[in-house]
Design a protein around this nucleic acid. Structure first.
Lengths: 146, 146
DNA sequence: CCAGATATTTCAGTACACTGAACTAAAATA
DNA sequence: TATTTTAGTTCAGTGTACTGAAATATCTGG
């Protein structure tokens, strides 16, 4: 099972690399997009803090996401200095459409009780990954933390 | 569930990035290491073909893996032009030790039947990911394919 | 034994994302 | 209203991984 986990993560990383190469976005760009997708629209500055990059670098991140048609810049009507970045339509979903469909098809072949077990495991596995990531990251500097 | 898949993959990518930053190896390096781990020792040239890089770039990949203590260069006794690259001990496992332990602990909390279901789903999910990756990659040029 | 083929490394040049600092515009404060 | 602070972009410089070609070492077929 530990081997399976390793293979799964390798396959996931390879997939993300392929998506990135296909769309002209980096791994960081994709993480930023996922962050927006999960959290909702964010200002450029907030995005910078969240992903640990300088504001200058974030401009590049947004440029690439916009060019790939995955996100959109909008002026904040409340504060016209601010730029609000929004994931377009379901830009992420569109890119991942083939994967989502195949995964849905796969999962539908299991009984409802089995699907329950799988979803539960995946949820907890995500927590484990986040915790381990935090453990690795802490101690290293990040520009936002200074 | 499709959202879960997305979150899982995002978490996996973030974890790999953190591991890479920690050890000074790139995502490509990690994929190369996984390839060696799965397939067994490979010559530098074979590695180049498999990961789609020029021989010159592969020299750098192996350099970084060696520097991180994850792989080893050995001359091929059968053909002294060749260099055989081997994953060290369980270098990969050592790096991923924290993750493997946590994942093992997580999975052990399920009944044997449930574990069966999870392992089955993960195995098939890996196949789906590989297939989708292949679909994205084909059509794009790679140095080895030319 | 010699000429060509093959495996890897080295090296110069290129591409690209990041930092840090200067710049522009807009808000907040006095 | 004038000054200071804040948000984002632009830009020069840096680091790093890649390509393509040349160099080195070794194998193989005539």
């Amino acid at each position: 099972m530990s081997d399976l986990g390793r293979e799964l993560s390798t396959a996931v990383v390879a997939y993300h690399e392929a998506v990135g190469a296909h769309l002209g976005v980096t791994a960081v760009d994709q993480r930023a997009l996922a962050l927006i997708g999960r959290h909702g629209p964010l200002s450029a500055g907030d995005l910078a803090k969240r992903i640990g990059l300088t504001p200058g670098a974030v401009t590049g991140v947004i440029d690439r996401l916009e060019r790939a048609g995955l996100a959109r810049r909008d002026p904040d009507p409340e504060d016209r200095r601010r730029v609000v970045v929004t994931a377009i339509g379901d830009g992420f979903g569109r890119v991942f459409a083939g994967l989502s469909a195949a995964m849905g098809e796969l999962t539908s072949r299991y009984s409802p009780e089995q699907q329950e077990v799988i979803a539960d495991w995946v949820t907890r596995a995500i927590d484990v990954l986040r915790e381990q990531t935090r453990r690795l990251t802490e101690g290293s500097e990040s520009p936002g933390t200074r």
